[in-house]
Simulated assay, not measured.
Amino acid sequence: MSTATLDPAAEPAPRFLDLIAAEWIKLRSLRSTYWVLALASLVAIVVNVNAVHTDLTYIDHPPPRMPGRPPYTYDPLFHGLGSIAGDLMAVAAGSLGAITVFGEYTTGLIRTTFAAVPDRRGVIAAKVVLVGGITALAGVVVSAVSFLAVNAMLASRHVGLSLADEGCLRAVLGYAAIVPVCALIGMALGALLRHATASIVSLVMLMFILPMMFGGDRYRWLKEIGTHLPLATVQRLTIRPGSTTTMGKYAPSVPDSWITMGVWGVAAVVVTVVVVRRRDV
């Protein structure tokens, strides 16, 4: 037997698909994580459908017109792709992203992972692809099913929309895209904090508590900070063009919301990679 055969350095480096397969085994072993994401997706669809179903009365009997304001028009996009269901998916996806990182640190599995694969960037890239792909699929399912179901219901009231209508495809894609973005943000928080409670609490504060500090239209700079937080981007993307629904003064443009969402996702990946590479396990 040759010396090269016994030399560990002669063993081929793991391929990227091998890293994804290894990450999938880890994720699949935590059954509660993907069951929670699946349950959250189902509940989010039910919440959206129920919200529009309860609106049927207001569609049949619209509120009286307020003096000096345009007549009320129902916005199937804003109500059918609702913020409550979106918030639920944000928490579920963010928690899944966080646990894929801090879970390995709390159990000590990360040492075994890096001993087997010293290329930390490759490991994190595999996690990003896997978690991002799974949560993107969940986002697409929730967004598409919600849109189709609520507009099928609204067709009898002659206010239903199709994907070909202006702003609809954008809204469906934006509502789906925020889910993997929140998952990536969760991964970054998990890498930074390496603690279950701290990561989830920080996620909730970033998604829901921080926006309360940057609301209102009195101070433009405060409002603009708020409109560049993660969930504010999808709120803008799900408003139908020409609708009476509005984000108030200083609302961001559609391209600005897309750019902001992309920046949050890219920044989260960069933070995760840098922190995992430079900090000891």
Rank of each mutant, 00 (worst) to 15 (best):
D165L: 10
V274H: 13
V181W: 09
T33L: 15
H158D: 07
L109T: 06
E23W: 04
I110T: 03
G186R: 09
N48A: 08
G167V: 09
L222M: 15
R277H: 07
L81E: 10
D18Y: 14
Y58N: 15
S156G: 08
V266W: 10
K26Y: 01
V101K: 01
K127F: 03
A232M: 07
A188H: 11
A183R: 10
R236T: 06
F102L: 01
A22E: 08
V150A: 14
V140R: 08
M1P: 06
V91Y: 01
A93H: 11
I99F: 09
I45F: 06
I59Q: 11
T197S: 10
V43K: 08
A177F: 12
V204L: 15
L37A: 13
H61I: 12
N50F: 07
A116G: 12
T3K: 08
L206D: 00
K223F: 01
T245V: 15
G226Y: 09
T73S: 08
G86D: 13
K249N: 09
V271D: 01
M261W: 04
L17E: 14
P63D: 11
V145A: 05
H79P: 08
I124Y: 01
G94K: 06
A125K: 02
P12M: 05
F147A: 09
R121D: 13
T233M: 08
A183Y: 07
M212R: 10
V140Y: 09
V159R: 05
R236P: 01
D217A: 02
T272S: 08
M89S: 04
T238C: 12
M205H: 01
L173P: 00
L56N: 06
R220Y: 00
P118E: 08
T244N: 02
R120Y: 02
S156Y: 05
S32Y: 13
V140E: 10
Q235F: 11
M89I: 05
A116W: 14
K223M: 06
L189F: 06
G216S: 02
R278T: 15
V181F: 12
Q235L: 13
